[in-house]
Design a protein around this nucleic acid. Structure first.
Length: 823
RNA sequence: GCCUGGAUGGCGGAAUAGGCAGACGCACGGGACUUAAAAUCCCGCGAUAGCAAUAUCGUACCGGUUCAAGUCCGGUUCUAGGCACCA
C-alpha cells in the first residue's frame, strides 16, 4: 500500500489478481445457498454508457455483498447481439454484421472488466454465436411442435424505412420504435407465437410476484387487458349471418340503438353487396385501409362511419336497429362487432350524436341528470330502467341476469377477451436467428431435423438495405430438401425477432457451455429462478412479459423447474444530464471512459450509487463525482495511517471512555445500516452516507488523547469490508495494506453486536404543544411512566412550562415527552 | 381520458412503524496551513426579525384527523412514465 491513492495502478493490479485466481467462477454447490444475481445484458452498441454503469454497479454491489455473506453467487453477463444496428452498420461499411458486432463486444468486455464487475466470464452468452442460436432454433421447434408457433397472412405493421415488420409492441405512437418512421399496414405471411394461450397464466401469476414493483405489474396487467363479458348474437334482418357482439355491459341491451361493424370484418362484403349504400361503404373501407394506425386511433378524431343499409333485430325487444361501418371498432378485439348503447358508452354517444341516432337510457345512476336529455354517457353504476322484466334491478346484477337468459336461449355465451395479441416473431432481416422451417410443396411447413441444427446464417449475402430479407440473395441457403419426403423444398428466409433470444438467456447462463442441450435441467433447477433481476423500466412490458412466457412454456416442456423467471425485480431510473436523458443528439453525454481515466472505476461506481436511490432518475454531476473521489482519498489516507498505527494489534478491546462507546456504537450501527440498506432496501445511497459518517467519526476519534487501538483496528477492518462491494479495487488494496489475507471479496461480511447498540443514556425531546423546547439525557429503557415522572421533576421542564396549566402529557419512551398546556 | 409514481434548502438527496425536518454529499462563504496555488484541515450555511439569546414561519396548494403530520385522510395544481376508440 503506497502513501498515495493511485487508482491507475491499483485497479489493473486487482483486476489481474481476480482473473488469475479465477475468483468469480462458480459451480453448482448443494452445500451452499445459491443466489442468482442478474442484470439485463447489453446490446453491443460499441461503448458502455452511464446507464450500463449504473445497472451493473447495482448488480455488482449485491453480488459481492451476497458472496461475502456466504452465498454461492451466480453473476453472469453476455451480449444481446443480433439486431438491426449491426446490419445497418454492415450496409454502411460494406462489411459483415459479425465484424461490427464482435469488435463492439470486445470493446465492451474490456470496459466491463475495467469497471471491476464480478462476472463469471466462463458463462458469457452471445446470442449471435452458433452455439447460442442453435438452441434458440431448437427451442423454436419445440414451440412449433407444441402448437405454439404458426404462420398466418395478416395485415401487419410495416416500417417502410427499416423495410421490416414490427410487433405491436414495437410500434410507439404509430411510429417505428427504432427509427420513428410512421408505420403502415402490409399483408404478409408471418410467423406468430401463441402467447394468447398463456394470457390467463401470465395475468394470474403476476400475483405470485411480490418482489416486483407495482408499477411494472400494473403495466403488465393493463397490457394483457383481460375483461369478462358476454357474446350476444343478434339476428340479421333479411339474412342468415349471426351478428355476434362482445360486450361487458349486457345490462344495457335495452338501450341498443345501432350496431357497428369493423370495416375489415369478413361479413362486410356479404352485408353490403347489392345494397344501394354499397358504393359509399366500399369507399369508406378503402379509406380505412389507407389510414395509418396513428390517424385511426386518435381519440380526438371525430367519429366517422357509414350506414350499410342493413338492420339487426334486438332479441330482447324485437327492435330493428341499423348496422353501420365505423373504424372506431377494431377487428382484432372481441368479435369486430359492437352493439351501440349511446346512453351508457361515451364512444357510442359520440357516434349517435353525430348520426342522429336515438339515445335510450336504461340505467339510472341517480346522480340527477336529465335522462331524456343527456349531454354525455352515463357509465356509473345504478338501477335498471326501461328494461322490461329487469327494470328495478341493480345494473351490475343485471349483467349476469340478462347474459344468463341469453345463454339459456342459446344466443349468448359468457366469455373473456384480452388486449394481448399473438406475438409476431418473424423479421425480414438478415442479422437474427434463422427460423428453422422448411416449406415443402407436398408437406407444407416442416421443421428442420433437430440433428441438422443449427441452420446457419449464410455468409454469401448482399446488404443493400432494401426490400426483403437479404438472405434471399444467398445462392446456397434457400434451396433444400424436405426433411419429411426429401423433395425439393425452400427454407424460410425470415429471421427471429431478437426478443426471442433474450427471453431465455438467463436459463442458458445456468449451463452456458452445454453443446448437447439448451441447458441441463438439473443445473437450471439449482440456479433458477433469478433471485434479483435488475434493469431499465423500459423493458417493463416486452422483455419481461416474453421472458415470463418462455419460462412457462419451458416449464410445461419439463425443461425449466420454475414458472416464473425473476423472483425480485429492480427497475433502475435513467441517468440524466442537465435534466434530460444523455444522448448524442442533445450533446450531453458523459462517457464512462472519461470518468474512469480521470478518477478510476471505484469513484465512478461509488458516485453513481451515491447520487440517487436506484429506482429514481439520476442527475449526473461532475462536481459530485469529485466528491466521491475525495471520499475515497480520505478513506485511503485514514487506512494508510491506521495500518501503520495498529499493526499487529488484535481487534480485542474493552470500551472504557464515553468516546470509545460512541465509536463502538457508530461502528456497529453502521454495520447494521449498511447491511439493511444493501440487502433489504437497495438504498445504496444511504449505505454510502452511513459509511461517510463512520469515516468522519473515526477521524474524530483517532485525534483524541486517549484512544483504544484495538477498537480503531476493528473499525478500520470493518470499514474496508463494508466499502468493498462499492469500491472493490481500493478496498482490496487497503485490505492487503492492513495485513489481511486477500481477497477481501472472499472475506466474511462483518456482523454487529446488539449489545454495543444499547446506549446507557439517550437524548429525548421535551415538547410544549408539539414544539421542541428542550432536550434531556435520560437513562435508556425507562418505562412510559418513569420517563414522564423524570422529565416532569426536572427544573428545566418547570422552566419551560413556566407555570402554565398542564392539560395532558404524552410520553413516548426513547423519543419524547410532549406537554400540552393551555393558553 | 384512464393507470402508476413524484413534488422537501442554491443543487443531489435523508428522515426505514405518525415523534427533533434538512442526515450525507455538492456548491457557496469565512478561517488555518502555504511565498502562492492545489491538496488537506476547521467553522458557517432553509426563510424572516434580532447584536444576541431567541421568536415566528417553512416539506407544491387548500382543508381535515391527531398531544404530534414531509409521513395518514379528502380535494386541487404541476410534473414524469405507461396505456389509449379494447366495446
Amino acid at each position: 500500500m503506497n502513501e498515495q491513492y493511485e487508482f491507475s495502478k491499483i485497479e489493473p493490479k486487482w483486476q489481474k489478481y481476480w482473473e488469475d485466481n479465477d475468483l468469480f467462477h462458480v459451480t453448482e454447490d448443494e452445500s451452499k445457498e445459491k443466489f442468482y444475481c442478474l442484470e439485463m445484458f447489453p446490446y453491443p452498441s460499441g461503448k458502455l454508457h452511464m446507464g450500463h454503469v449504473r445497472n451493473y454497479s447495482i448488480g455488482d454491489v449485491l453480488a459481492r455483498y451476497k458472496t461475502m455473506n456466504g452465498f454461492n453467487v451466480l453473476h453472469p453477463i453476455g451480449f444481446d447481439s443480433f439486431g438491426l444496428p449491426a446490419e445497418n452498420a454492415a450496409i454502411k461499411n460494406q462489411s459483415h454484421p459479425a465484424i461490427w458486432t464482435s469488435s463492439n463486444i470486445e470493446e465492451m468486455e474490456k470496459q466491463l472488466r475495467q469497471l471491476g464487475f464480478s462476472y463469471d466470464w466462463d458463462r458469457e452468452a452471445c446470442t449471435y454465436k452458433e452455439e447460442y442460436y442453435k438452441w434458440m432454433q431448437w427451442i423454436f421447434i419445440q414451440f412449433y411442435k407444441k402448437g405454439l408457433a404458426y404462420k398466418k397472412e395478416n395485415p401487419v405493421n410495416w416500417c417502410p424505412s427499416c423495410a421490416t415488420v414490427l410487433a405491436n409492441e414495437q410500434v410507439v405512437d404509430g411510429c417505428c420504435e427504432r427509427c420513428g418512421t410512421q408505420v403502415t399496414k402490409k399483408n404478409l405471411s408471418q410467423w406468430y407465437f401463441k402467447i394468447t394461450d398463456y394470457a390467463d397464466r401470465l395475468l394470474d401469476d403476476i400475483d405470485k410476484l411480490p418482489g416486483w414493483p407495482d408499477k411494472v405489474k400494473t403495466m403488465q396487467r393493463n397490457w394483457i387487458g383481460r375483461s369478462y363479458g358476454y357474446e350476444l348474437t343478434f339476428k340479421l334482418k333479411d339474412g342468415d349471418l349471426p351478428m355476434t357482439v362482445f360486450t361487458t355491459r349486457a345490462d344495457t341491451i335495452f338501450g341498443v340503438s345501432f350496431m357497428v361493424i369493423a370495416p375489415e370484418h369478413p361479413y362486410v362484403d356479404q352485408l353490403i353487396t347489392g345494397q344501394k349504400e354499397e358504393a359509399l361503404c366500399r369507399e369508406y373501407m378503402e379509406a380505412a385501409k389507407r389510414q395509418s394506425d396513428i390517424e385511426r386511433s386518435s381519440t380526438t378524431k371525430e367519429k366517422t362511419g357509414v350506414f350499410t343499409g342493413r338492420y339487426v333485430i334486438n332479441p330482447v325487444n324485437g327492435k330493428e336497429v341499423p348496422v353501420y361501418l365505423a373504424d372506431y371498432v377494431l377487428m382484432g378485439y372481441g368479435t369486430g362487432l359492437v352493439m351501440g348503447v349511446p346512453a351508457h358508452d361515451q364512444r357510442d354517444f359520440d357516434f349517435a350524436t353525430k348520426f342522429g341516432l336515438p339515445i335510450v337510457p336504461v340505467v339510472d345512476a341517480g346522480s340527477g341528470e336529465d335522462l331524456n336529455n343527456l349531454t354525455k354517457a352515463v357509465e356509473a353504476e345504478g338501477v335498471m330502467i326501461n328494461s322490461g322484466k329487469y327494470t328495478g334491478m341493480n345494473n351490475k346484477e343485471a349483467i349476469d341476469a340478462i347474459g344468463g337468459d341469453f345463454e339459456k336461449q342459446g344466443i349468448g355465451k359468457k366469455t373473456k377477451n384480452f388486449k394481448l395479441r399473438d406475438w409476431l416473431i418473424s423479421r425480414q432481416r438478415y442479422w437474427g436467428t434463422p427460423i428453422p422451417m422448411i416449406s415443402c410443396p407436398d408437406c407444407g411447413w416442416v421443421p428442420e431435423k433437430e440433428e441438422n441444427l443449427p441452420v446457419l446464417l449464410p455468409t454469401d449475402v448482399e446488404f443493400t438495405g432494401k426490400g426483403e430479407s437479404p438472405i434471399v440473395t444467398s445462392k446456397t441457403f434457400v434451396n433444400t430438401k424436405c426433411p419429411v419426403c426429401g423433395k425439393d423444398a425452400k427454407r424460410e428466409v425470415d429471421t427471429m425477432d431478437t426478443f426471442l433470444d433474450s427471453s431465455w438467456y438467463f436459463l442458458r447462463y445456468t449451463d452456458a457451455r452445454n453443446d448437447k442441450a439448451c441447458f441441463d435441467p438439473q443445473k437450471a433447477k439449482y440456479w433458477m429462478s433469478v433471485d434479483q433481476y435488475i434493469g431499465g423500466v423500459e423493458h417493463a412490458i416486452l422483455h419481461l412479459l416474453y421472458s415470463r412466457f418462455f419460462t412457462k412454456v419451458l416449464y410445461d416442456l419439463g425443461l425449466a423447474s420454475v414458472e416464473e423467471p425473476f423472483t425480485n425485480l429492480l427497475t433502475q431510473g435513467m441517468v440524466l444530464k442537465d435534466g434530460s436523458k444523455m444522448s448524442k443528439s442533445v450533446g450531453n453525454v458523459v462517457s464512462p471512459e472519461e470518468i474512469i481515466s480521470k478518477y478510476g472505476a471505484d469513484t465512478a461506481r461509488l458516485f453513481i450509487l451515491f447520487a440517487a436511490p436506484p429506482e429514481r432518475e439520476l442527475e449526473w454531476s461532475d462536481t459530485g463525482v469529485e466528491g466521491s473521489f475525495k471520499f475515497l482519498n480520505r478513506v485511503y489516507r485514514l487506512i494508510y495511517e491506521l495500518a501503520e498505527d495498529t499493526k499487529g494489534i488484535p481487534c480485542v478491546y474493552r470500551l472504557e471512555t464515553k468516546d470509545d462507546k460512541q465509536l463502538a456504537y457508530i461502528l456497529n450501527n453502521t454495520v447494521k445500516r449498511v447491511s439493511d440498506d444493501i440487502n433489504k432496501r437497495f438504498n445504496f445511497n444511504t449505505a454510502i452516507s452511513a459509511l461517510m459518517e463512520l469515516v468522519n467519526e473515526i477521524y474524530r476519534y483517532k485525534e483524541l488523547e486517549d484512544v483504544n487501538m484495538g477498537l480503531l483496528r476493528d473499525s478500520a477492518e470493518k470499514l474496508v469490508l463494508m466499502l468493498s462491494p462499492f469500491a472493490p479495487h481500493v478496498c482490496e488494496e487497503m485490505w492487503e495494506g492492513l495485513g489481511m489475507q486477500a481477497p477481501v471479496y472472499k472475506a466474511p461480511w462483518p456482523e454487529y453486536d446488539e449489545a454495543a447498540l444499547v446506549k446507557d443514556s439517550i437524548e429525548i425531546v421535551v415538547q410544549i404543544n408539539g414544539k421542541v423546547k428542550g432536550k434531556m439525557d435520560v437513562p435508556t429503557g425507562l418505562s412510559k411512566d418513569d420517563l414522564q415522572a423524570l422529565v416532569m421533576e426536572s427544573e428545566q421542564t418547570a422552566e419551560i412550562v413556566g407555570g402554565k396549566e398542564i392539560v395532558k402529557i404524552v410520553a413516548v419512551p426513547g423519543k419524547l415527552v410532549n406537554i400540552v398546556v393551555k393558553g
